[in-house]
Simulated assay, not measured.
Amino acid sequence: MSVKLIAVDMDGTFLDDRKNYNRARFAGQYQQMKAQGIRFVVASGNQYYQLRSFFPGIDHEISFVSDNGGWVVSENQDVFNGALTKQQYDTVIDHLLTLPHVDIITCGKRSGYTLQSYSEGFKRMAGMYYHRLELVDDFAHPDDVIFKFALNLPDDLLADTMDSLTAILEGIVVPVSSGHGSIDLIIPGVHKANGLRILQDKWGIKDGEVVTFGDGGNDIEMLCQAGFGFAMANAPDKIKQIARFQAGYNNEEGVLDVIDKVLKGEAPFNE
């Protein structure tokens, strides 16, 4: 069965630890993907506006499953976005504000929102991932469609916080790990795999024709859903155990090495 869709996570997967990738090598691969009719999708927990900045010149041709599936954009066209009700938003934010040591970003379609009162270091870090970020005095519901919360907290509090949020906010949002000291609260069922499913239905692409790459807890569903799910060599063991295949390290162009195999029809893509 031929591959018709390649979807990549960004941080720790497509990008190296310096937040870059081999642009010249990928540009050549992308032209071959187009010639072979293979769709390229960026599937990340990051904000749409940040993600498209990595692909100047082709951002209007490719598709983005951004904010962990909260907002799907294909060829500059809105395809899907989740939306929390004001009541759901208030329930979540009221609880989050009781948690010490947790910095919050509210993720909306127009912008991300975080508190002016947070540390300068956190606001600088947030600005790297949110190209549209408004500093606000409080977390009153903004005039925007809200589909995710991003939390930053000390690594040693991550596991316990995930457990407590799972219990307390059940049915409203689901916590997923998106990297060191980071938790995303997403709408139940509105994850990366759901975003890919929407695009697959739009294009008539079967799961067996999909290749996905990831390294974190927010990639699990799409690694399992795809016929060819690749965990990165730098991924935690629990991610490697659920993925059928493994790619090389993100710092060694592991994703691009596998894309070469797709384009050449080499194993495991020649079965």
Rank of each mutant, 00 (worst) to 15 (best):
F147Y: 15
G216C: 05
D257R: 07
K261Y: 11
H131E: 11
N152P: 04
V173G: 10
Q36Y: 11
W71Q: 07
A233T: 06
H131A: 10
F26W: 10
G189V: 05
H141Q: 11
R110V: 05
V174E: 15
F149Y: 13
A7P: 06
F147P: 00
D11E: 06
V42T: 03
K19T: 05
A235D: 12
D67V: 03
G28H: 01
I198N: 03
F228A: 02
E134R: 10
Q87I: 12
K34E: 15
L51D: 00
Y21S: 08
R23L: 09
Q32P: 03
V41I: 15
F245H: 15
L96H: 10
E170D: 14
K4R: 15
G195E: 01
N46A: 08
A226Y: 02
K202Q: 15
G121R: 11
I168G: 05
G217D: 10
I198S: 02
E252T: 07
Q29N: 05
V258H: 10
G217L: 12
F245G: 10
L97W: 06
A243W: 11
L153F: 14
A193P: 01
Q87E: 15
G37R: 04
G265D: 06
V211Q: 02
P100W: 04
A167N: 09
A35H: 12
H131S: 13
Q88H: 14
N251G: 04
D144M: 06
S164R: 15
P154S: 12
F80T: 08
Q29H: 11
R110W: 07
G195C: 01
M162A: 09
I168V: 14
S111V: 03
M10S: 04
T98W: 10
G195P: 06
K109R: 13
G181R: 01
K86P: 04
K240D: 01
I93E: 07
H191V: 13
K206T: 08
L169Q: 05
G108R: 07
Q32G: 02
R132E: 14
H95Y: 15
L99V: 01
L135K: 05
F26L: 09
N218E: 07
K109A: 07
L199N: 00
M232G: 06
I239C: 04
L263N: 02
D156N: 13
